[in-house]
């Protein structure tokens, strides 16, 4: 459900940024795009569960800002150099990165990265290593079972596992930060194995594209 919301928001954001990038080069337009994106994201998020609300807003805003910045950079470049090809390519790569899965799930008490998430992680790794200014935060989470501080450490172990995977794929350690929230920020408040499995995760958040 969380994934659904996020992708919806991402889709909206992409659309907004795309319009922004095509229509104008001025700073005011970018600002409008940014606010518009934030507003639309907020509207979309209001429909979602209260749980997702906070996170969605934070992410949508961060993404909107990052994208507006990227769009602005791209547009400026286009204006100065009249080399639109580069910008388009950049945009394409960014779109590709955004289209990848941003949440990696784990088995109980495990921090091993399952095969099914490798494609997505390879994609993120490629984007991050080719865009030295891109930065990600890997947010590690655990389900509610077990003690809170131990779960903080467990969440971090998961974040570190993803981080190590990305680094092995060529991403600079400086581009990655791991933050663990343990069991403090569940996406699903349910108390069954399905809910728990949704909560055992690492979320990949771009703070700069």
């Amino acid at each position: 459900m969380q994934v659904g919301n996020l992708s919806k928001i991402i889709a909206i954001s992409i659309l907004v940024v795309f319009i922004g990038a095509c229509s104008s080069t001025g700073e005011t337009a970018d600002a409008t795009a940014s606010t518009q994106a934030a507003q639309m994201a907020a509207e979309a998020a209001a429909l979602a569960e209260t749980q997702a609300l906070e996170e969605a807003q934070v992410q949508a805003q961060a993404q909107a800002q990052a994208q507006a910045q990227a769009a602005s950079d791209a547009a400026q470049k286009a204006a100065n150099d009249a080399a639109t090809a580069d910008a388009a390519q950049q945009q394409q790569a960014q779109d590709a990165a955004q289209a990848l899965a941003h949440v990696i799930y784990f088995d109980f008490d495990q921090s091993t990265i399952k095969a099914e998430f490798r494609t997505a992680l390879n994609g993120h790794a490629a984007y991050l290593s080719q865009n030295p200014s891109a930065r990600v935060v890997l947010e590690g989470h655990a389900d509610e079972r077990g003690t809170r501080e131990y779960n903080i450490a467990l969440g971090e172990r998961r974040g570190n596992a993803v981080s190590r995977y990305l680094v092995v794929q060529g991403v600079s350690v400086d581009a990655i930060e791991v933050v663990s929230f343990g069991e403090e920020r569940p996406v699903n408040a349910g108390q069954d194995s399905a809910s728990w499995s949704e909560n055992r995760r690492v979320e990949i958040r771009y703070i700069n594209y």
Binding site: T112, R118, N122, G123, A126, S129, A161, G170
Partner: peptide, 23 residues
């Protein structure tokens, strides 16, 4: 190029395996 992404990823597979192995 987009396809070079896949290429570099596959060259890193050995590293990934090593990392898994250590874990």
């Amino acid at each position: 190029q987009p396809n070079s992404v896949a290429l570099s990823a596959s060259t890193n597979n050995a590293n990934a395996q090593m990392s898994d192995f250590v874990e």
